[in-house]
Nucleic acid binder design. Structure first.
Lengths: 325, 325
DNA sequence: GACGAGGGATGCGACCAGCGAATGTCTAGC
DNA sequence: GCTAGACATTCGCTGGTCGCATCCCTCGTC
């Protein structure tokens, strides 16, 4: 209090407009106003009459000095100033009450919002599954979703437009700025037409056996895409058709125009005339999928809950995928 | 605090919805939110960083335990809970700020209201004069006025519908419930037609000389009215005409239909063909005029100021009245 | 008319909240 | 690796606020 010396005289004259009052005083004031008696109000609050008397006294001087109550022989009664203050006191109490309630709702993930993004194949099963479970469990949380590639999502995350981003491992991105929550490791599959020579193969396929195949890929150049792995296997895949969308890709594969790499998350939506072959993980390491958040920024309970649901969904999806073939 | 033991654990969990929060914490919170730093906020508020840290910490636990800020290596940043609370904190600060301002206005009689009543003859000069002066001096104060007889006004006062009542001495009313602020003593006059035998009398008139006169009065029976004095003089005045309104009374007097008692406050509005004769104060004691307020109930500053103006007006009116005749 | 009851104000002693100063810990940047 | 900056924590101390006891005032009653 020493640094305040000289600014306010004794006890709380309004310094820069905001009087120093405790909500305790406010509650006491309202209780006294309701009962018209210090003693009765004190009994209701579990305090002695003397405490109430001094609380009110303190409030009066904090508010500028004017009395809020007339002290009558039989209890007290609001002055005009007191009547005026009742409204403000109730507003203050109401604000704080409401604040506590909303913060509690936030804490229990019964309110607030989750803004998240995901890359497209995650939307095939993982995200819808998680969303359904989350909606059921936390109906009060507003959810906004967006789709995009990993770099773009991370960018949006850093800019504060997203709370969470479902991303896959990406070389070159500065991951120090993010906290990664591991969701699942997805093996890769190769999609071949139903009658393809390799279709009957037993067990994982070595990537090298597809060195001469024609590829359907989202990009003409393999660098930075899933086909990256082929480079490390010593061959440069020939991209016959550039097709971005997974549904379209399947059509090309089914028509026998080439083969395509498929991340495990997309296996749920494969058409019957396309066969998926698991790739040997020695050639193509599992691609890890993470939920990324900004490092150092605490997850709101709603976001935390959503992350939990995402984890569950990941387990269920990964299990289902491996069971399906 | 001992009686609170067992209700709240350590430090301010919301008891019945209202958290125990000091406005100091709120101000510190807003300052920290504005600057994004405990240290900077502390400097602005004249406190040390440790104090700010604990203030925020206390606020966080009072609000339910969730952190309001993310502690980053380079300052702090609002969490979602913190962002949510900003609005409420500002609402609280705004309410209290506004309360202080309005209470200050009230205290300086720059706001609030004055509800007063007055008996009719006071409205002839005293009340308008006071109103004009008060309006000029305190333009922010709302004034409501009503008219009535003294008993009715006191009743309204006790019921809390009035702050102040301009009344005259009345027998029989329980005056212990009121505080009387003396305004003036008004002598009584008798109004006679211009050609009346007594019109030329020098000096005060004895009431007994009017024992045979016919009277114009507001009531058929003299008891409780100004004519009460006649009873004490040993004669019962004959009321020829019952006329309530002073303007009408004058007409009857001017027409020679009788004489009428006139309180000094009404002398300002006398017509030229009516002569006013002062009555001997030995027969008819001066009637005191008071401003009455409820005993024990403090006068709001606006009401107090109005009372002061009434006193000034009383001096001016009384002086003018005595000068005029 | 004296007296007890009820209610608010106040002095006293004790306690704890909250201050400053110093120190610890962590991270970013050089 | 080292320094600087920022928040957390500890320690000692001041002071605000509580309960208790008491005083003062008014009202209702015998």
């Amino acid at each position: 209090m020493s640094s305040m010396a000289g600014m306010s005289s004794t006890h709380g004259g309004a310094r820069d407009g905001l009087p120093e009052v405790s909500t305790v005083w406010v509650r006491v004031f309202l209780e006294v106003a309701r009962h018209g008696s210090f003693t009765v109000a004190g009994r209701h609050l579990g305090w002695t009459q003397s405490a109430v008397s001094r609380q009110v006294s303190a409030l009066e001087s904090a508010l500028g000095g004017g009395p809020l109550f007339d002290r009558l022989p039989r209890g007290v009664r609001l002055t005009e100033a007191g009547r005026t203050f009742v409204g403000y006191a109730e507003a203050v109490a109401e604000s704080l009450h409401e604040a506590v309630r909303e913060l509690a709702a936030l804490r229990e993930a019964a309110g607030g919002q989750v803004r998240f993004g995901a890359f497209s194949t995650a939307d095939a099963a993982l995200v819808p599954c998680a969303l359904a479970a989350f909606r059921a469990r936390h109906p009060g949380v507003r959810i906004s979703r967006e789709e995009g590639l990993t770099p773009r999502l991370l960018e949006r995350l850093a800019a504060g437009h997203l709370d969470l981003a479902v991303v896959s491992t990406t070389q070159g991105a500065p991951m120090e700025a993010y906290t990664l929550h591991h969701l699942l490791d997805e093996p890769l599959y190769v999609a071949v037409p139903a009658g393809h020579p390799l279709a009957g193969a037993d067990g994982p396929v070595r990537l090298a056996r597809l060195a001469d195949a024609e590829w359907i890929s989202g990009s003409a150049r393999p660098e930075g895409t899933l086909l990256d792995a082929a480079l490390r296997q010593g061959f440069r895949p020939r991209v016959a058709h550039v097709v971005a969308e997974w549904t379209a890709k399947q059509g090309y594969v089914a028509a026998g125009l080439g083969v395509a790499l498929v991340p495990a998350l997309a296996v749920a939506s494969v058409r019957p005339d396309v066969t998926l072959l698991p790739l040997d993980t020695a050639d193509v390491p599992c691609r890890a999928v993470y939920a990324a958040s900004v490092r150092g920024r605490s997850l709101s309970p709603a976001v935390g809950a959503f992350l939990g649901v995402l984890r569950e969904a990941a387990v269920s999806v990964a299990g289902g995928a491996s069971r399906s073939r």
